[in-house]
Design a protein around this nucleic acid. Structure first.
Lengths: 156, 156
DNA sequence: TATTGTTATACTCTATAACTATA
DNA sequence: TATAGTTATAGAGTATAACAATA
């Protein structure tokens, strides 16, 4: 229902910069979700990247730190300190691959899995908050389109 | 068509970490697009953020640097050097607002608009590349869902 | 007294290259 | 000779606080 002061045939508002550009829209979505999740993650002593790493380690079981680096989209040198920290906190364990001693096999410990579960619960809450006004079908479609475009594609 | 070695009733593959979590999916989408656009933007001497700033300045015409900072999601102190650089390159002009001399009115110059146009063309190319396999309706739906969830929402 | 913009600075993060060990 | 992991370090980017100008 129109506000009393709103003309019936108002001119359409000029589109915002961000709505005209899908790239910026995606950038904003990412930033917004991270900003909302960051305080909760901080209570778990996790950065967004550390959460990402735990998720990849739990589900994708990369066979080396290099694979983990690729999955996260960061340099191998970064992964070393990232994994160092999580290992010190007892969230994962490193073990040299006996068949190729250059590789580190990384497995989440029980507390690693537990912490991931907490982080997932938090992420789910944030997602529910952000997509509160969006109907279920649109949310499902959003997920599927992103999977089709990004998740099944080899990284370059 | 199935590969010869693929069993007809193979067990469904465990979902990748990123496909189970919408937040990570969005993070990956953002990262992927930025990674693909970065080299082209670098040829225009632009970072992703500078491109974002040009787009906001052109379309949203923020009335102060603080508004620009909010739109970009960065701290006011960051905007100073950001705008400094673009001003030095003749892409925009600062002018004190005569009605409130604390505020800086920022307007894109002609070359600022031209550079933005080039960056937009590049972004469009990258988007077309990334969403090549996605049908037009799904792309449109993706855009609309993101607008509904993020663009019409006051920043917090 | 509050707000906008600015500067300085300490801090964190990142990228690069060199190195060890394994293959 | 190539690859996985590691380390050191220089450079880039960020956050924080203090300040000037204006309201």
């Amino acid at each position: 229902m129109a506000e009393p002061d709103t003309p019936l045939h108002s001119t359409a508002p000029a589109p915002l910069a961000v709505t005209r550009r899908l790239s910026l829209l995606l950038a904003r979505a990412d930033k917004e979700i991270l900003a909302r999740a960051a305080p909760g993650l901080a209570e778990l002593d996790l950065t967004g990247r550390q959460y990402h790493a735990l998720a990849v380690l739990a589900d994708d079981k990369p066979g080396s730190q290099l694979e983990l680096a690729t999955a996260l989209g960061v340099l191998p040198a970064i992964v070393v300190t990232l994994v160092d920290d999580l290992e010190t906190r007892g969230l994962l364990e490193r073990q040299r691959d006996p068949r190729d001693r250059r590789r580190q096999n990384i497995t989440l410990t029980q507390s690693g899995h537990q912490l991931l579960q907490q982080a997932d619960a938090l992420a789910a809450t944030v997602e529910a908050e952000v997509f509160a006004g969006i109907d279920e079908a649109a949310q499902q479609q959003l997920r599927q389109t992103l999977i089709d475009a990004f998740a099944n594609r080899p990284r370059h």
